[in-house]
Nucleic acid binder design. Structure first.
Length: 647
RNA sequence: GCCAACGUAGCUCAGCCGGUAGAGCAAGUGAUUCGUAAUCACUAGGUCCGCGGUUCGAAUCCGCGCGUUGGCUCCA
């Protein structure tokens, strides 16, 4: 370790300090006011506690509550304050540990004899407010393992003792205190509790100790905290926006789909919803022709023998529906892959046929535990834009590359421009031997690296038959959704003894690539709806244009305009209600019809209609022919803008 | 499956300490014939999720079941 370190400050200046200097000491050399306002240090982009000694050189700055990066520090500190409040109000509560949510929430788990009630949360909040107002100082202490054990044993914190044992030997153990409260913690924390500007407890839930369902269930409390009241309010405004965009709400409001307790976690698509659903499928079918896929149709119900052969019975059983007929056990298909293997093996295959790309929109049934289902994004029956590519090992690279192009093209059409990519490797419950797995994993990794795309490794998250690359998109409010997937599989071809005759006349084993681009049509529908906040682009909108007569006297003129639109293949309706124009416009906007056409005396006379584009107001009268042309072009181009001409 | 909350008209929701159900929107009917985000009036609409219990009496209290929501675990 150097005896001296060099810190490069935000203004570019380089300052020398003895190794072991703390960020707080550095802040004091800049100014007492900065030192007072400081909540954390940042060295080369990572947060460091103000009291933790700095041992290496780098780019350094002091964060105050004003910096957005300080949020996690404030929330982490609020987390300790919450645990403190709970212990003060409910003596005997055993604390486990807090954690930052990936969003802007913090949480803390407790061993508590019952669930926390909303009234408890109110009391805890009030207690927290007192602790915050007291401005108690956070202190950091490095302790030996034995000291830590002694400390938590004396406090009766059994769960902390377990956590302590999970810290690897040789790692520094630190505890943080404020007031009477002590927690095993790496930090960083703010200096004083009153630097927690605004906080709110949000909800409670059960949570397994260490996230393992074989362990005891603890009681978790979620909350959030920000530097200021204004930021806290902004957080709730974001939640409100999320609720407004919730696909379950939009689906109901726009009469797209519904659910019934008589078919739990299974969507009913109404005429409008089914229309959109079918447009998504049509879109994929159209691209399938271009990308060389052939569609197949396969059964729903299979003798379990099939699933025993494929390995699903072994590794996927708890997600399958079973039934018995004539003493034979059957199961609904949860995946299409075995069917496609059966098709493949109906005759001998030549290398000349490969890659063979079999696509299937077949309905799948997967049993999902009742607590995990959610709207369209997690259902028990759905269809995927599924396909299996049978190819030679040498073709893997080019097939995966082709898939990347295909996937990016599809996502761009919806405005999902930057998918996040994960590489998931062999899970605990897997079939096939390690050598096959390693080969498959390294090939996928090579494809990613050759393409030069950024990806994150997700160890142990692969499918049971092979590793996979997953594509996750952000919706407009930043939530992550997994859609597309590319899965490499050497196992099923083995299990189904698939072969092809190679150029040299010998029999070889093909490789199988499982892939979906939209993922499940249901989930994609939900995510897309949220992404668009219900404002579907023209090519997907069930009702593209609505003609609004100014009064009943112009009904005939409005119908005539509609006829011309319909003749041109445009989906148009007339609002025939005897309402005022303002009401018709309002309803058209609320129902998110992309284009409203107003027809009154002026328009009827001149063969025009006044165009009103969704959320964009009146664009003035235009000839009906021109309207037809604009709508038709935007539809064919799958434009995200319902009226490209206007931009 | 586990933890918690919730389930009242088609939708959003009110209904205190148990006394027999209400609003707005939507729907239907009528009037109005209207120029860029809500015209007016009237009418109809309820196994208060289901089953059981406590009680003279349950939408309200208790238990069980189902479903939904937010988490946990899981996942396209």
């Amino acid at each position: 370790m150097d005896r001296e370190i060099v810190l490069t400050l935000p203004d570019g200046s380089e300052r020398r300090f003895p190794a072991g200097v703390t960020p707080l000491e550095v802040a004091r050399t800049v100014g007492e006011r900065l030192a007072k306002a400081a909540v954390a240090g940042e060295l080369d982009g990572s947060l460091v506690d103000l009291r933790a000694p700095l041992t290496r050189s780098g780019r350094f700055r002091i964060l105050t509550a004003q910096d957005p990066e300080a949020g996690p520090v404030i929330r982490h500190s609020a987390e300790h304050v919450m645990a403190d409040a709970v212990e003060r109000l409910f003596p005997g509560t055993i604390i486990d540990a807090g954690r930052q949510d990936h969003s802007e929430k913090f949480q803390y788990d407790f061993r508590f004899p019952r669930g926390f009630t909303p009234e408890d949360l109110e009391r805890i909040e009030a207690e927290m407010a007192r602790i915050v107002a007291a401005g108690q100082e956070f202190t950091r202490e490095v302790v030996s393992r034995e000291q830590a054990r002694e400390l938590f044993r004396a406090r009766g914190e059994e769960l902390k003792l377990v956590r302590l044992e999970d810290i690897p030997q040789g790692e520094e153990i630190t505890v943080f205190r404020h007031g009477e409260f002590v927690d095993l913690c790496r930090g960083p924390h703010v200096q004083r509790t009153d630097q927690i500007g605004a906080f709110k407890l949000l909800e409670t839930s059960g949570a397994y100790f260490k996230g393992d369902e074989r362990n005891e269930m603890l009681q978790r409390i979620y909350g959030t905290a920000f530097a200021s009241r204004a930021e806290l309010d902004a957080y709730f405004a974001r939640l409100e926006e999320a609720r407004r965009r919730d696909h379950r709400r939009l689906g109901k409001e726009l009469d797209l789909f519904s659910f019934s307790p008589l078919a739990p976690a299974s969507a009913f698509f109404h005429p409008r919803g089914a229309f959109v659903y079918n447009r998504l499928v049509d879109f994929m079918r159209e691209l399938y022709r271009e990308y060389g896929y052939e569609e197949v149709i396969t059964p729903q119900l299979f003798d379990v023998e099939l699933w025993k052969r494929s390995g699903h019975y072994e590794a996927y059983r708890e997600n399958m529906f079973f039934s018995e007929v004539e003493g034979r056990e059957f199961s609904m298909k949860p995946m299409n892959c075995p069917s496609h293997c059966l098709i493949y093996s109906t005759r001998s295959r030549s290398y000349r046929e490969l890659p063979l790309r079999l696509a299937d929109f077949g309905r799948l049934h997967r049993f999902e535990r009742s607590g995990v289902v959610q709207g369209l994004t997690r259902v028990r029956t759905f269809a995927q834009d599924d396909a299996h590519i049978y190819c030679t090992p040498a073709q893997i690279g080019s097939e995966v590359e082709r898939l990347f192009q295909f996937i990016f093209r599809v996502y761009q059409t919806f405005g999902f421009s930057q998918p996040i990519i994960y590489l998931s490797t062999k899970p605990e419950k897997a079939i096939g031997d390690d050598a096959l797995w390693q080969s498959a994993e390294s090939q996928l990794q090579r494809c990613l690296e050759e393409r030069g795309v950024a990806y994150t490794l997700n160890p142990g998250e692969g499918a049971f038959y092979g590793p996979k690359i997953d594509f996750v998109v952000h919706d407009a409010i930043g939530r992550e959704w997994q859609l597309g997937t590319i899965q490499l599989d050497f196992n099923l071809p083995e299990r189904f003894a698939l072969t092809y005759v190679a150029e040299d006349g010998t029999e070889k084993r093909p490789v199988m690539i499982h892939r979906a681009i939209l993922g499940s049509i249901e989930r994609f529908f939900g995510v897309m709806l949220e992404h668009f906040a219900g404002d579907l682009p023209l090519w997907l909108a069930p009702e593209q244009v609505r003609v609004l007569p100014v009064s009943d006297r112009f009904l005939e003129a409005a119908r005539a305009v509609r006829e011309r639109l319909v003749a041109a293949g445009i989906r148009a309706e007339v609002d025939e209600r005897s309402e005022k124009l303002g009401a018709k416009i309002r309803d058209g906007e609320v129902e998110k019809v992309p284009v409203l056409l107003v027809v009154g005396a002026r328009e009827a006379e001149s063969g025009t209609a006044s165009v009103r584009v969704r959320h964009r107001g009146d664009l003035g009268a235009k000839p009906v022919d021109a309207i037809v042309a604009t709508v038709t072009t935007a539809t064919l181009q799958r434009s995200l803008d319902p009226w490209p001409e206007a931009s």
